[in-house]
Design a protein around this nucleic acid. Sequence first.
DNA 1: GGAGCCGATGAGCCTTCGTCAGTACGAGTA
DNA 2: TACTCGTACTGACGAAGGCTCATCGGCTCC
Lengths: 298, 298
Amino acid sequence: MSLRQYEYALAVAEEGSVTAAAELLHVAQPSVSQQIRGLERELGVELFARTPTGLVPTVVGRAFLREAEIAVSASRRARATARAGADELVGELMVAVQMGFGTRQLPGALGALRRRFPRLEVTVFEEPSSAELERLGRRGVLDLALMAACEQSPADAHHLGDEEFVVVLGAGHRQLAVDRVELRELEGEPWVRFDRDSALDGVLLNVLRDNDLTPTTAARVSQTATAVRWAAHGLGVTLVPASAVPHGHEHLVRPVFPVVSQPVIAVVRHGAGPAETALLELLRQETWSEPAFFSPVS
Amino acid sequence: MSLRQYEYALAVAEEGSVTAAAELLHVAQPSVSQQIRGLERELGVELFARTPTGLVPTVVGRAFLREAEIAVSASRRARATARAGADELVGELMVAVQMGFGTRQLPGALGALRRRFPRLEVTVFEEPSSAELERLGRRGVLDLALMAACEQSPADAHHLGDEEFVVVLGAGHRQLAVDRVELRELEGEPWVRFDRDSALDGVLLNVLRDNDLTPTTAARVSQTATAVRWAAHGLGVTLVPASAVPHGHEHLVRPVFPVVSQPVIAVVRHGAGPAETALLELLRQETWSEPAFFSPVS
DNA sequence: GGAGCCGATGAGCCTTCGTCAGTACGAGTA
DNA sequence: TACTCGTACTGACGAAGGCTCATCGGCTCC
């Protein structure tokens, strides 16, 4: 039941004789003969019919060889993929992004990464729950994660910058008149909140508690873009990272006082390879703090 | 570069640790460890990142494992297919039919075969040229062939019956008035003939020569059904096996004098297995000679 | 009937795999 | 801080399997 047996069987079927297959494979004839017989003995089936002029696949042999060819070619692909990975960068990079961090920076970094390493596939888990993130991280599926706080302190955590949080107000909201919203002024407002146990909801709860506000929940959503849209429609106010505000809603956004800010930390997994390092470097080169971005619209 | 290495690597990726993979595979831990290391050494790439809690696939490792899984599953399918073929009948039966022989009998036999062995796939090469047939036969691709004459005389050739040839006349043809057409009466008629070097054209040429007729070629076609249709439209007359006449054209058909008849011989390949034998037996059970079938329509 | 082709078989050598023991390293805990 | 537990790795040894050489049996073609 080895790949070699498959390759030998395929060569025999292709060449029509053990001898020809043997010289194609650069081995002696008995070797091929033994492998074929061993395969047939192991499977309990005659894969080839013996004719005076060579070996010919039987009915069941053909069915077998069809699958065997898939196995062999897949093996070749696996080998080629890995060997290519030695020089070039080939593979599948798994990235998790919490709290909408890097919404503005990630596309640029991933685009640059794709230009430099076209055969590198990137999968991004956007705003997974804490439990999901934990699970992915524990199982080692993740190569890089963007998050606010990290329990694992070692050198694998890199501080990229800080993300300022902003409130999104409904169209016509009275607080749109000021440049920076005092959080206490939002007493009594209904809030568009986030999924229970999500990091974003945790930040929001902390902010409300620090400013002696009682949270009135208008709705809970999973994605920051949804929260912004619902808040814009007047369902309530919400608090999201500045870079997570979609285009077209900037006029409904205000920075807050006291300032709410979270560090953006890139956690690279243990034993990071060149792919992870490259993406981390590209992320570093992006601009991470633009304090004047959300100045009041004129 | 062996299947075992793939299986080990997949188990390690699945379980997240060498130890767990080892007990899943019912082998000792160092064995798995060595195989993984050997694989990485051979490929020159680190497939797994070592963490204190186990092994985790790297970026290139994931790409490799994706292909490896295909190889392993294909191998399992190959094995399952072959082992199933030991009890049941599984596989791909290749049949060649020359000169439209068995057009009436084959569907019945193949249907019965399919009912008895549902997992047996049958591929029929219809009316291949002599060169094609020769090539297929030489390479041992064919399991069974229906033909008129066979150069290989041994016990692998089974006489199923005889196929009487009939002429197909154009609608309104004067010879439709008689029950059996004298071939000499067709002097000067244009003929719908068959591809050069085809067995059918060989039979036709022999018949014409034996009856001192000079062949006037109206057209050459590959398939008997086409020849019948064209003859029915008055393009010329043609000579085909009786069973090859499609439904709806029986009234344009006449037996000939002197009788033209060819033996229908089933040639089974060397080392025939149960599938070939079963099909041969089913073909035998079909009725092969129906002399009164083409009596004149009233 | 002999020459030439085919695959099958057996003996010997060598590589490889598997196991057992022991080592090294990091994490969690008292 | 030290101890224990978990992890993977390494080296030595025995066993199994692959490869090669030489040989045999069967068939075809001349």
